[in-house]
Design a protein around this nucleic acid. Structure first.
Lengths: 224, 224
DNA sequence: AATTACTGCGAACAGTGTTAGCAGTTTACA
DNA sequence: TGTAAACTGCTAACACTGTTCGCAGTAATT
């Protein structure tokens, strides 16, 4: 018996190779590794089928013997990247455990800056991602709340990590000039920027959201 | 005098048209409107220069008389969409004000499902987006904390809204089958899904993050 | 030995953003 | 007014993308 959320065909359900023809010179692992190397260097946009192919010394159409589409390849990349973060076992302090997981994720996205982009697709989770979710749910065992909420919370946590990963990325958002007449508050804010760095907005945000979502929260709906 | 965060050339600094040639048959507003119409119907990927061009009865290269690149067009689209949300004036209750703003944003992203995608580019903010930031900072005037933190908080709020906008979108994340042996906690969670819907995770998350980031937070690092 | 199923890949297709360059049009300046 | 400068609109084209077709070669099955 097994439980799944959909039955779309994906890389994970398709066998890696048949048993009839000549032995393939590549494997999904090779292709995935090459793609990740390219993405680490040049971003997700640099991962074209042709680029991956030349990195492997073959031609682009050959890749379609191993992968059904570029989307498949991106799914493989995500799962391979998620495999790199190995969260510790639960200690019982679920909030600390999950904040530690979030820190791991942030580091993972620093190692692979393309990861946020790859995550925001309509992706299909692979086995390592499933392991990851399972770990997080294990950590959340002491929490008494519906399991759907726990999954939601883990998903939102991951989302927030991507937000921070993006925000810390090299490029700064661009603004047209702010004038004191049209944008008085923004002008004031930009003029005296750099007052004092907040302590740890990342952990702060993660903790806030997790406690907010997973805690009984008697007076939280306020003005609704 | 003015304050800006960068001096990259962008749509906003370039004049809409010169003063020498024949009067243009289009304007940036027309092109932006057409592009938004296409994106509303078919997503951001459907917004190709050629598609926008035929929607306007012209050829693709003509658009480059009004816009320097597709990125420029996307920047215009974002600013036009942001212009549609007109947040109320501050009431003094900053948290409630901002939660209301977040709700407006969420509605805006429901009207324009491409907005999350367009927002997570390396975009350059236009005048309406500046107005929006200014409004938010105005709401945050009663809060005593560094202005950089306020800007960060508004940015993070917007990010969280995009996460929810995506999560509520039609497509469901896909998972390979979860087995009780390999993923015991995930299996249990998926098996008994649908216990009880949480009350309002959106407002919950927004409130949590905002208070977490903007409040003096005497005991917020808790168990750490 | 024949069949079947596979691999690897050159050629090609439909699509993308973008540029070159040209004819025609309007303004600015002499 | 005449002329030069600056602009518009657009056809053709370039370099790129993901992907499919179909063919030659290879290994396992029957």
């Amino acid at each position: 018996m097994s439980v799944s959320t959909a039955n779309r065909t994906s890389v994970w359900t398709r066998p890696e190779r048949g048993a009839r023809g000549p032995v393939p010179s590549l494997g999904r692992a090779d292709i995935t590794a090459a793609a990740i190397r390219i993405a680490d260097a040049g971003g997700l946009a640099a991962v074209s089928m042709r680029a991956v192919a030349v990195a492997l010394g073959t031609a682009a159409p050959s890749l379609y013997r191993y992968v059904e589409s570029r989307e498949d390849l991106l799914d493989l990349m995500v799962d391979a990247a998620v495999a790199e973060l190995s969260p510790a076992e639960p200690t019982g302090a679920w909030l600390d455990d999950l904040v530690a997981v979030a820190r791991l994720q942030l580091g993972n996205m620093r190692d692979h800056p393309w990861l946020p982009d790859a995550l925001q697709r309509d992706l299909s989770y692979g086995p390592h991602t499933m392991d990851f979710f399972d770990r997080c749910l294990w950590m959340l065992e002491p929490v008494d709340c519906p399991t759907t909420s726990k999954l939601e919370a883990v998903g939102l946590m991951t989302g927030i990590v991507t937000l921070f990963a993006r925000a810390t990325a090299p490029q700064q958002p661009f603004m047209v000039a702010a004038t004191p007449e049209q944008h008085p508050h923004l002008f004031a804010a930009l003029a005296k920027a750099g007052d004092a760095a907040p302590r740890d907005p990342f952990a702060q945000a993660v903790r806030s959201v997790l406690t907010g979502l997973l805690t009984a929260a008697s007076d939280s709906d306020g003005v609704g």
